[in-house]
């Protein structure tokens, strides 16, 4: 690939991609206080990976985030979400009853906070992993994106 006439794109992307990923985590951990949550955060994280692969090629991306890893993350996210429900069941509550996760004094809501953060983390993993997997399935079938393809 001729890198010369994409130099501005590459430099800007190199500076932007870490900020996009960081913003994804901000959206996730700030989801209790502002718009956004695990779903949007997962999508933003996936976009940062996909943007990298669109600009620097799919092969280096697949070496950094392997397709197997993306699939495993997606499955882990779904299991994490379900796992919170099962833990609540084991601790004597209903399925996904976060109050049962942590016993604290009446009026306290630590269980709700922990439950919401953890299931949102599950959403983040499942969404980011699934999106990257879908992108790999589409883009992985052509070996390299040529300039004239745009």
């Amino acid at each position: 690939m001729n890198g010369d006439h994409h130099v501005i794109l590459r430099v800007v992307a190199k500076a932007l991609i870490p900020i996009i990923a960081l913003f994804g985590f901000y959206v996730h951990f700030h989801g209790e206080y502002s718009p956004g949550g695990g779903f949007q955060a997962g999508v933003i994280l996936a976009v940062s990976i996909i943007l990298y692969s669109l600009i620097f090629g799919i092969a280096p991306t697949m070496r950094a985030v392997t397709p197997g890893f993306a699939r495993a993350v997606a499955a882990f996210g779904f299991l994490l979400y379900t796992g919170v429900g099962v833990v609540a069941l084991i601790r004597g509550g209903n399925f996904l009853d976060y109050d049962a996760l942590i016993r604290d004094e009446p009026g306290g809501h630590l269980g709700q906070h922990v439950g919401i953060i953890v299931i949102e983390l599950g959403v983040l993993f499942a969404v980011a992993g699934s999106m990257v997997t879908i992108f790999y399935a589409f883009a992985g079938r052509v070996s390299e994106i040529r300039d004239e393809d745009w």
Binding site: F39, I58, A59, M62, P67, G68, R71, A74, A75, G77, F78, Y81, T82, G85, F95, L96, I119, G122, V123, A126, V127, G129, S130, M131, T133, I134, Y136, A137, F138, A139, G140, R141, V142, S143
Partner: peptide, 28 residues
């Protein structure tokens, strides 16, 4: 419960695309 279902749908969509198109690593 609804959100769990939605996450399941997203995961199933990823799985379906992979089943139809392959993992993307066969050629690459």
């Amino acid at each position: 419960f609804d959100t769990l279902g939605e996450v399941g749908v997203v995961f199933a969509a990823g799985l379906a695309v992979v089943l139809l198109l392959g993992f993307g690593e066969r050629s690459l």
